[in-house]
Design a protein around this nucleic acid. Structure first.
Lengths: 340, 340
DNA sequence: TTGAAAGCGCTACCAT
DNA sequence: ATGGTAGCGCTTTCAA
């Protein structure tokens, strides 16, 4: 039943030539005789030869595999990013090995170890919400394995990064709310360690400052991405003696959860309270009212991240760490449309 | 800069023992002296030893890697499934290598080849919409590599399969429409080759038959999953002299696209036309009106698929091909709520 | 309890 | 143009 895969040796014996010759013929080496080459190719086909990638990897010290570690696979942003990575990798003859940290630092650490053990040629990572230290990544860097952060990046390590201009996106979002007449704009931020949380929060603050709107600490909350958490924080905001007239949420997921609470409490969006999210997930277009958001080119982020890591893998000598910052776009929808 | 990874040899030299001893110590072999073992573990830690998984794979003829091929990574159903697979695999010490066929048969074929070359220990696959023949999978089976289909399965090959009861789900969906008073129920089906298209279509037909509603061929259309295609087909239905009073779509994606066209034409859902989808993607809960749909336990499908393939990998002798059929659940929302 | 050596499948160097 | 051989890092058999 179980048939052992054909090896070069099988082909060599079958043809009465040496293993070296077979190897050369299959890899298209120029010095091999045309008839021999042809015979080898035919035999390889006949015997269903499939090169043993494991053996090639051991020999060449290259696995042609890119590791990806993401907080989760299920959110649209990450799956779109991974899609971009995988397509670019496939185009260049690379494979992808994927792990999810499930937002756990401990899992992220073991994922990194696994990727090292697997001898991936490069590692793409978007950090878990718990990640505050980067010691687990030092072995990667010490071994000279190309490392690229995307979206949830690390500012401290000297690597390439691919992200959007979170500050600018948040700034535009907040300014948009100000322009529509909102003055008590709350911000539900994400886990404090995350680069995206910090940068979006800063964009929010800077927009307020530009328009001389005082910052109210009680209007700025940090939430996890869990539904219950968002609900609690939303209630907190709405229960304030002087509740906000708008909420800018760190992402669409949070915005949508907040909207559920707001609607549940019988308040009108955008009349009573305007909403803006971040990312432009499909849900934002379909929810009622449709959600104003800041679009992040997720697929592009993946595509570009993969392109950069492949460059670094294949031309390590010309490598210079780069921070690639993609533009966001404010998409105005009904959740913030009201007379200014 | 670039440091070569530590090998067993490095540790052996460092300690003045043999490579065999180091190997045994690290793998927890019982026969090794306690002091020696301790010294080895210490040295391994000091030198940042990370086992070379590639070498282990070559040696053991096992990669501890499961291959996954899906039509795309971006749709919620597949990313949820993959999440389930990855979590189960990780729990059992396996890695996942992921490819998307992008719904192309040719790409699927090359993906399968890549997986073989990579010597994955098992392959999980959900077929592309173009796949009508299965020759590309024979080498997998011939080599005794465990193969499990999920969702878009192949009925012809003697392998395990994990899916939902598409027929029953479609039947319940259609019957629900009938019970709310719809009599001209259209069905926008998917690509004809797909198992899910066939089974859902049959469920629809059987529900009509049970309730003595004549089948109208003009109300059954096959569509790709592309937006434009769905739009064209929806217009075709609405332009009929006697248009449908309900549409059951092969999945939520198609349902949502159809809803956009219907709303664009100024028709009311569900008053003028009721809608039911399939899968229960997040969008279905948020779209206006909220979409009645048949829930598929995507994460579970992945989890169970992974569990089964791991069983087959680790206990090949007890393997018996199974078809695991999970239950669906009809989720009634506003797109089909009207007086019966 | 430890060591030497073979070999997994492949590539590449050194012969011829 | 072709063949022999070493060796990538590891595990495991056989000897000591």
């Amino acid at each position: 039943m179980k048939k052992e895969p054909t090896t070069l040796r099988d082909i060599a014996i079958n043809l009465g030539v040496s293993i070296s010759t077979v190897s050369r013929a299959l890899s298209g080496a120029p010095e091999v005789n045309d008839q021999t080459k042809e015979a080898v190719l035919k035999a390889a086909k006949k015997l269903n030869y499939e090169p043993n990638h494991v053996a090639q990897s051991l020999r060449s010290n290259k696995t042609k595999t890119i590791g990806i570690i993401v907080p989760n696979l299920i959110s649209h942003f990450f799956s779109a990013t991974i899609s971009g990575i995988q397509n670019m990798a496939a185009e260049k003859g690379y494979n992808v090995m994927i792990c999810q940290s499930n937002e756990s630092f401990a899992t992220e650490v073991s994922n990194v170890q696994m990727m090292m053990s697997h001898r991936v040629d490069g590692l793409l990572i978007s950090l878990s919400k718990e990640t505050e230290t980067y010691d687990h990544l030092h072995p990667i860097l010490n071994r000279g394995i190309p490392l690229v952060f995307f979206d949830r990046v690390c500012e401290e390590l000297n690597t390439s990064r691919v992200m959007v201009d979170d500050h600018d996106g948040a700034f535009k979002a907040t300014e948009h709310l100000i322009e529509t007449g909102c003055r008590r704009i709350a911000h539900i931020s994400g886990p404090e360690q995350l680069s995206i949380s910090k940068n979006r929060r800063q964009g929010y603050l800077d927009a307020l400052q530009k328009h001389n709107i005082p910052v109210r600490e009680e209007l700025i909350l940090h939430s996890s991405f869990k539904e219950e958490d968002v609900a609690v924080h939303t209630h907190t905001l709405l229960d304030l003696p002087n509740p906000p007239d708008a909420i800018f949420a760190v992402n669409d997921l949070v915005a949508v959860q907040a909207m559920l609470v707001i609607k549940e409490r019988g308040m009108k969006i955008p009349e009573d309270i305007a909403m803006v999210g971040f990312t432009n997930t499909p849900v934002s277009a379909f929810i009622e009212p449709s959600l104003t958001t800041v679009a992040q080119p997720a697929y592009q982020i993946g595509h570009i991240s993969a392109k950069h890591i492949l460059e670094q893998i294949n031309h390590p000598q010309d490598f210079i760490p780069q921070s690639i910052v993609l533009k966001t776009e404010l998409i105005v929808r009904n959740s913030s449309r009201r007379k200014a």
